[in-house]
Design a protein around this nucleic acid. Structure first.
Length: 592
DNA sequence: GCCGTTTTCGGCCCGACTGTTTTCAGTCG
């Protein structure tokens, strides 16, 4: 049997946590499963393989008991306790607990006292007014259940999954709103909070924290924006609105001396804040959005800035991108610790190694892309159109590539300020071969290889396919390794750990594709790759001049979430330093 | 069920909101 993937293991832990919760287990046990699910989901290595090696308890949050369950899952495909509890509680019960406002305690009572075991029977019971007679339930409960079921059905009919927005769409809403609020005469400080501030892949809604002389006036300014479709509430504390694109926006106007506490609290992540607070409690300090309560003095310290919040708790300032409880608290301890990295910034980027032109599916000519790159101050730009098997009418035959090489070299001569690399984004075929002859690949200045077809082959085959490309002497880098499209398409099955090992061994670079719906490598993989010594690239994959600039910040955000410094990203180097890092630079050219 | 610069046992973040309550449990973020 094939090993379960990390996401399958995580799903099994989440399910078991839910089942234990229904079964009435103490909440800390349930939380332990949910925490373990998250650790597994974020792990950069195969948890099944770690389990086989007897090393899985090295992961934080996995102890002896969970190890036993993992062994069962890996060896038999299921966890016995989960099978037992599934027999005890109908599947519909878990579905019921996903309704907002209905949790495990009350779902279980509905099941035991009324026999309600699905959304359908819940709806029926509510309509028949049988729920209101239960102790602790009332008429309102029936109304709320019916409304929640109706909303869930409507969302399902609309094809809404989680209602999450890819970050670029979210920022396209957030940025004009921030501008509007900052320009308002009554406002002083206006900051984006929440997962958008942490540059997460996607966000559910927007949180904005502000201070103002006239809070209500600022709140009303938000509600008056023409982006706003409806107003859920407005007052002295702020406003809650929904935009025409369906994005919820929550503005909180707070006292200036608590701005730091509230911004820190609402920036999250939940995991970061929980770990922060837990550590604080051990020192007699209690952190909330309103301040830091000191047991010793009984005083609550209010902080106007986040820097003060972290300093009060004994930490250096932690950049929002790092606040995921992935070791940042330990690193930020002011007394000792290894220290936080100096994170890469957008302005560190000196070149781009992945771009398209009209030769394949891009919208601009070589010269237009060169001008756009120069405008960004770049020293080099690789033109990497798709290769011979790309299809969709966007393929570039070997003969066409020969012409394209000439055109790029001619353009290079015409643009003395920038190095234009004749490159290609070569398809990695299902068998691991490339779709140009080696002699042609050898004549290029740069080759990035990517998977664009046959996504559904199994993990072993996909891994061997990509490793074969990594071992190819003319492949300088691998593009968008996992093929994911955020909120649209899951990554394909591939053993990233083995890919990283092969890339480190051969000196092949791995790309963080900066397209906002890709960001692939993701943060966890990029961090693991850099730690293994792999050189990382942040590439736009631009298909037009505009995205050469506009995508970059999403790639940099992923690099920062991966704890990367400028040093660890190869294209922060000038051309003279970058050129010899290409794999081909150290390779003897084959004859011919 | 995990974990250890007060612990190998006894802790395990903090507050808001809701609906059903006469002081709180459940749920959520």
């Amino acid at each position: 049997m094939a090993d379960p993937t990390n996401s399958e293991i995580a799903a099994a832990f989440d399910e078991l946590g839910d089942l234990y919760e229904l079964d009435g287990a103490i909440i800390h046990r349930v939380v332990a499963y949910r925490n373990a699910a998250k650790v597994v989901r974020d792990a950069s290595v195969s948890v099944a393989a770690l389990t086989r090696d007897g090393r899985v308890t090295e992961l934080p949050g996995i102890g002896a008991t969970l190890e036993t369950k993992l062994v069962a899952l890996v060896e038999t495909g299921d966890i016995p306790q989960a099978a037992r509890l599934r027999a005890k509680f109908p599947a519909g019960l878990l579905e019921m607990t996903r309704l907002p406002g209905l949790g495990p305690k009350r779902a279980r009572r509905l099941y035991e006292e009324l026999g309600v075991d699905s959304l359908q029977s819940l709806e029926t019971a509510a309509r028949q007014q049988r729920i209101r007679d239960l102790k602790g339930f009332g008429v309102r409960a029936e109304e709320n259940f019916l409304a929640a079921i109706a909303r869930a059905n409507a969302d399902a009919a609309d094809g809404k999954t989680g209602g999450r927005f890819v970050l670029d769409r979210a920022l396209a809403i957030a940025e004009p709103l921030l501008e509007l609020l900052r320009a308002h005469p009554t406002s002083h400080r206006v900051e984006l909070a929440g997962s958008a501030r942490r540059w997460a892949d996607s966000v559910k809604d927007l949180d904005i924290i502000a201070t103002a002389d006239d809070p209500r006036a600022l709140a009303e300014a938000l509600t008056a924006s023409d982006l706003v479709e409806s107003i859920a509430g407005v007052g002295d504390a702020g406003a809650r609105v929904r935009t025409h694109s369906g994005m919820g926006v929550d503005l909180k106007v707070v006292a200036p001396d608590q701005f730091g506490n509230l911004l820190q609290h609402f920036s999250g992540s939940k995991e970061h804040n929980m770990a922060l607070r837990e550590a604080a409690v051990k020192r007699g300090l209690h952190v909330s959005e309103y301040g830091v309560l000191d047991d010793a003095t009984g005083e609550t310290l209010r902080c106007a800035t986040e820097q003060e919040v972290y300093a009060e708790l004994g930490y250096a300032y932690i950049e929002p991108e790092l606040r995921e409880n992935r070791g940042e608290l330990r690193a930020a301890l002011l007394d000792g610790g290894s220290g936080l990295p100096e994170l890469i910034r957008e302005e560190d980027v000196r070149g781009d190694l992945h771009s398209h032109t009209t030769a394949s599916d891009g919208r601009n000519e070589i010269e237009e892309m060169a001008e756009a790159a120069q405008a960004l101050g770049y020293e080099y730009l690789a033109i990497t159109d798709h290769s011979a098997s790309h299809g969709f009418g966007d393929e570039v035959s070997a003969e066409q590539l020969e012409i394209q090489i000439e055109r790029i070299h001619a353009a290079n001569a015409a643009f003395p300020g920038i190095e234009l690399l004749a490159g290609s984004e070569v398809n990695i075929m299902p068998d691991g071969s490339l779709d140009y002859p080696d002699e042609l690949l050898a004549r290029l200045d740069w080759v990035i290889a990517s998977v664009h077809s046959s996504f559904r082959i199994d993990e072993r085959a996909m891994t061997e396919r990509v490793v074969a490309a990594i071992e190819h002497p003319w492949v300088d880098a691998i593009g968008h390794l996992t093929g994911r499209k955020i909120e649209a398409r899951p990554p394909y099955a591939i053993d990233v750990e083995r890919v990283i090992e092969a890339a480190a061994r051969t000196g092949t670079m791995l790309e963080i594709n900066a397209a906002p719906d890709r960001r692939d490598l993701n943060d966890v993989h990029a961090r693991a790759a850099a730690q293994a010594g792999v050189r990382i690239l942040v590439n736009s994959d631009a298909h037009r001049t505009r995205t050469l600039a506009s995508s970059r910040r999403y790639g940099i955000a992923t690099a920062r979430r991966a704890w990367l410094t400028a040093e660890q990203v190869a294209n922060t180097r000038g051309w003279a330093q970058f050129a010899p890092l290409r794999k081909r630079a150290g390779t003897v050219s084959p004859p011919g």
